[in-house]
Structures are given as C-alpha cells and as structure tokens.
Design a binder for these strands. Structure first.
Lengths: 210, 210
DNA sequence: TTTCTATGAACGAACGCTCGTTCATATATG
DNA sequence: CATATATGAACGAGCGTTCGTTCATAGAAA
C-alpha cells in the first residue's frame, strides 16, 4: 500500500473501502432505509460530504455494493462456483453441500443485501441475477468432468436435479445463518449434509437404503 | 380552534382493518423504514393521528400485522397445515408441493413481512417462530394417518425428511413469487412439483426409475 | 319524547428531530 | 499552479409522534 517513503500519507482512495465496508455492515443489519448516510460516515470514520465524492446518491452506493459482491461471488475460485465446475454430479453430492455452507458463511453479507433489495426495492437490482439462473447451471453441468446423463435416472432432467440439490443446501444454510436458528432440523451441519445427500441419491422410500 | 371534521359514518373500528391492510401493502412493497405513517394513513383513507388511536407506535402496528398473519397461517384449515395433518407421508409427496404453492400464494404478504423483519429488525420478531420448527413437524407426523416409519427407509429420520420435502417446495415457490422469477428451473409449476416428488421418492441416481 | 352528559373515533396542525444532498472551503499532492 | 480529496455547516423536505379539538352516538334523566 505505502509505496511512498517515510512521509505519512493515506493510500489513495482508502476511504472508498471504509465507506463500502461501513455501508455493508449497516445495510445488512438495518436495511437500506433504516441506515442513514450519517450512520455510514460515522462508522467509516469519514465526513458526511465525503461519501458524495465517491457516490452520487445513497442508492448508488447500495448498487455498487451489490455489484462488488456479485463480481466476487461468481469468480471461479469461490467455493460454490468451484464445486459446481469440478464436482462429478451426481457423484459427491456432499461436496455441493459443504460448498454451499462455505459460500453462505463467506457471502452472508451479499445474501442479506439481496434480501434487502427484494424487500425494499422489489428486487429491482437483483432480478437480472435470477432471470437466467438455469443457464448457469446448465453450463456448469456441460463442463463437468463426469457424464451426468449416464448416472442420472433417465426420467430426470440433470440440470433441474443439480439446481434442486444446490438450492436445497443453500436454502438450508441461509435459514441457519440469516434467520439465526441453530440446527432447525435438529441436526449438526455435517449430519444435515449427509442426510440430504442420502435422500437425493436414493430417495426417501424404503427399498433405497445403501 | 379546530376545524370541522368530515366524519364518515362507519362501523366502529372499521378503520382498523383499513389501516392494517394499507400497512401490509406498503410494508411488503417498500419495507418498514421505507414506509411512512403518512403513506399508511393516505392509503387507508384515514387521518394521520387516527393510526395512533389503534397502535402506540409504527413498530407496534408492524408487530400486530405479523401476529395477525401468524394466527391465520397456522389455523388447521389452511392449505399447508391441512396437508401436513392429512397427508400420508411419504405417500402423496405431490400434495405437499401443491399445498406449498397455495400457501406461498395466499400468504405471500406474510412471508414478505417475515423477510422485512429479518432484514430491518435482525429477525427480532420472528426468531421465535423458527426456533421450535422441528417439533411442529414431528407433531404433524405423529398425528399422520399413515405410519411413516414403515415406508421411510430405515436410515432416514422421517421428521427431517418431511421438513426437507416441505421446505424444498416452499423455497421453490417463494423464489418464484417473491423474487419475481417465472419458472427459474425452466419448468411449469406442476412439472416442478412432479420432478421434486420423483426425486424425493426414489432419488436421482439411475436405477431408481419408476 | 326531549335534553343532558359521557365516550372515544377522527382529524390535522404543529413539534422536534433526522433525512439525503449540496456547497463553500481547506488541505495535500504532483 | 491544477487536481483530488476531505470537511461539516446549511438547506429544505420529510419523519414519527403528540395533542387540542370536533362530533356522532349511547344511555340516563326528565
């Protein structure tokens, strides 16, 4: 950071990161309209007016936050993206479970901001994300090392099955994390991951035991 | 020195319902902090001050709304509650799917208000709802007409399986309805219900075909 | 019946405060 | 110098809430 020598000097645009961090903290805890620009400036340790050197409006700041997280979320090295690309679906379903858990933990702020957008903006800024959801999963499956079509039952669409598994896991951990319930199934995380994988592989009905 | 009021003749406490209805509309569209008491009074066709004849504070109005919906949601004649009580789990898994769809449609306002609470109040008012979730499903299963333990594979906890099925369906339709994506799996509602039931019964892997 | 009193829903101006945003100004860098 | 960054007072609009008041109605008293 300090590429300049002995003299004290703030890194250029250092306050940008502080503003984004403070806004993320507050928006995720009190929502958009429940957070004031003075709150953000105060937590960031920055003057009120300085926020407007970086963002035209409060909503623009919110949108920038969403964009920043989105960019990070979909990078190939992030847990769920990596798992979707490398997992031999429908083998190793558990791997998708653990990747979902890691992702929800790592990106809980992002997920909460998406909920904020749904609640306070009618999903205005995130609708695009969900509109083409299926094609992302289809691409992941196509690039997958295993031939899913061979191992998935012939009467099941592999893409839909992959989405079902992934979202089941994600929603489970979202409920744990965001709704602040610990073990709402009465199970530890690993046990829940194993249970879901067991059901997804062979079904609930007796006769499908391993 | 007051003005002459234009009083409408109406049933006593008739405005209570109008206030609750307007608040529900607005809170679900703009969130709690994004909705002003003047907005609510205006939409309800009621004076600003009159709101405070019924509710001590704006937050109290919000909490009353949540309580009203909760009471209605858990009545025995509501679709999902009825389905959980009467369905012979794990038979007729589809019935849980259709009941979930009906419930999400009928109670979309309630569900959105729960999200509002999560986003703007840190789940303060709804945490209790989720804390003892498992016991509700366990009770439903106990009162179920079929002996679930006989038909569920021996290595699967029937209560957890019932929760998994129900929440999978609910979360699917919540995403359809609240996030405003139509057919995010690329399937019509009935097809999605059938697909999920198929997977839950016999699993994804080849060899479990019907 | 008529008259009086008590009740509480309804009103909306007003209060004190906070909101998002702007702007004149200051400072430091290059 | 010019440029980028920072400050916080100031602005006007809007906020949740309060409060003095009006008035339709109900019941008691005559």
């Amino acid at each position: 950071m300090a590429k300049n020598g002995a003299h004290k000097k703030a890194a250029p645009r250092a306050n940008l990161g502080r503003i984004l961090g403070a806004a993320s903290d507050l928006f995720t805890r009190q929502g958009f309209h429940g957070t004031s620009t003075r709150d953000i400036a105060g937590l960031a340790g920055v003057s009120l007016g300085n926020i407007y050197n970086y963002f035209g409006t409060k909503e623009e700041l919110f949108v920038s936050l969403l964009a920043k997280y989105e960019e990070e979320y979909f990078r190939p090295d992030q847990p769920l993206i990596k798992a979707l690309a490398s997992t031999a679906f429908p083998d190793h379903i558990e791997a998708l479970g653990f990747a979902s858990r890691e992702t929800v933990k790592k990106f809980s702020a992002y997920i909460l901001l998406i909920y904020v957008d749904v609640v306070e903006f009618g999903a205005k800024h995130v609708a695009r994300l969900f509109a083409n959801m299926r094609s992302g999963y289809a691409a992941a499956l196509k690039a997958s090392p295993a031939k899913a079509s061979l191992k998935v039952a012939r009467d099941i669409d592999p893409v839909a099955a992959l989405m079902m598994v992934t979202w089941n896991y994600s929603n489970y951990f979202i409920m744990e994390k965001l709704f602040k319930v610990k073990g709402h199934y009465g199970l530890a995380d690993n046990e829940a991951v194993k249970l879901f994988a067991r059901v997804f592989k062979k079904g609930i009905l007796a006769g499908g035991e391993k």
